[in-house]
Design a protein around this nucleic acid. Structure first.
Lengths: 232, 232
DNA sequence: GCCGATTCTCAGCCAGTTCTCAGGTGACTC
DNA sequence: GAGTCACCTGAGAACTGGCTGAGAATCGGC
């Protein structure tokens, strides 16, 4: 968590997406640079030598694969996360899943992107061996097993519930607005309203049983996961 | 698992294949170096003295057999795994299966390659005496005999089922995505869709009988083999 | 070359999941 | 203490992902 800042290059021609992703990653503690075309991306890789590249496949000039190929040809094995449209991903699978690379189909949630980046950085740093766990009070989230425990009882969560809890745990002791949660946990093109966060918090609390009040409602703001001694 | 790192040299002129194999082996804990031509390979063997060579037969300059012959002539008996195209392999089969060597016809699965490498390294290290086994809960996989037992009952598996179970057991307690499984257990040029993983999990569960629920479905993610006491 | 085993595709079914909505409840304001 | 507002939660509709049986295609052993 306190390693030297990781530099990420984000490449996509949709400006709003670049903005969103960039600010989320900056917030997560990464140093971010962005470009909107293939050629600019290549130039940026050469000049700033990033630790990871988030690369859209559909770019106006050179496509993402070609950009990646050229990066590799220059002898850089920086990991790349490709962003692709939902359809057609299957055909591409074998082509670009290699060298520590990964891909994400649009639309994705920022939580998902953050998870992939973390996983890749862990792999690159070579600490793939030990389990990656997150604990707050009696709550424990095992990210490798995708399991959650409360006082050693396993709690079965749906994917969305899991992402929500993960986000809350990452920000334990900090109040998060419903909008913030919506932006992070849901796919970025989600059209509905923030009320759905309430519904999912309700689901979570029900499943947490006695641990339900670990999720504190911050009236007029949003929610917060209580740290055991945050009361002080 | 904690022996001094094994150095592997991967030689193939197809860049994407080299990338894929290299990263898979690195992930499996090997130290990997790669070359794309016969001469470069010979030079690399001399300079880095690898513990094992994965060698494509069809190279642009010198062919794989010749490379192997020259390595031997220099007095090195480093084991070699040849990669060959599917056709024509038959004639060669008897020819080069000797001296700790092995071969694999393209396309192969990464799981298969990993199994061969493991087997050879075991042979070379001389611990052929004791059986090489993998156990998770009441499941036991005997890699030498290629047999699987659940509570001492032998379970008869097809080759693909075996590779799948082996991969799951290697990663017990960790959720694996269907894509990850597909990439590792199936041949790398498999064109079909990830749904086939579901089918094979279904086969496995049927054969496992009472042990069926050791394979947990992680909805939205993939599958995981349950460890008996994952809480530790 | 035949036959059984194996691999793979496909489609229907079902359970779990996502999301919307609306009535209820509790908290804060004046 | 009445009104208002934010939040909670149950019900249910629509959808999705995963399971499995059936069958076609292929492989491999004899």
């Amino acid at each position: 968590m306190t390693e030297p800042t990781t530099q990420i290059l984000v490449v996509d021609d949709e400006e709003s997406l670049v903005d969103m992703v960039s600010s989320a990653l900056r917030f997560a503690g990464y140093e971010v640079r962005s470009e909107q075309s293939g050629f600019d991306a290549l130039r940026a890789v050469k000049s700033s030598d990033p630790d990871l590249v988030v690369l859209d496949v559909n770019l106006p000039d050179v496509d993402g694969f070609e950009v990646c190929r050229r990066i590799r040809r220059d002898g850089r094995d920086v990991p790349v996360i490709f962003l692709t449209a939902r359809d057609g991903a299957d055909d591409l699978r074998t082509g670009f899943r290699r060298g520590g690379d990964d891909y994400l189909t649009k639309p994705f949630s920022l939580e998902e992107l953050a998870l992939r980046i973390e996983a890749i950085m862990r792999r690159v740093r070579g600490d793939g061996g030990d389990h990656h766990r997150l604990a707050v009070g009696d709550l424990m989230l095992d990210d490798d097993a995708h399991q959650v425990f409360y006082e050693d009882d396993e709690i079965d969560l749906s994917p969305t519930e899991y992402r929500l809890l993960h986000y809350l745990m990452l920000n334990a002791g900090r109040a998060l607005s419903k909008m913030q949660i919506l932006d992070y946990v849901w796919e970025y093109d989600f059209g509905g309203d923030a009320g759905i966060v309430e519904t999912y918090v309700s689901y979570l609390r029900k499943k947490l049983g006695r641990g339900a009040d670990m999720i504190k409602t911050v009236r007029g703001v949003g929610y917060m996961l209580r740290r055991p001694e945050a009361a002080a």
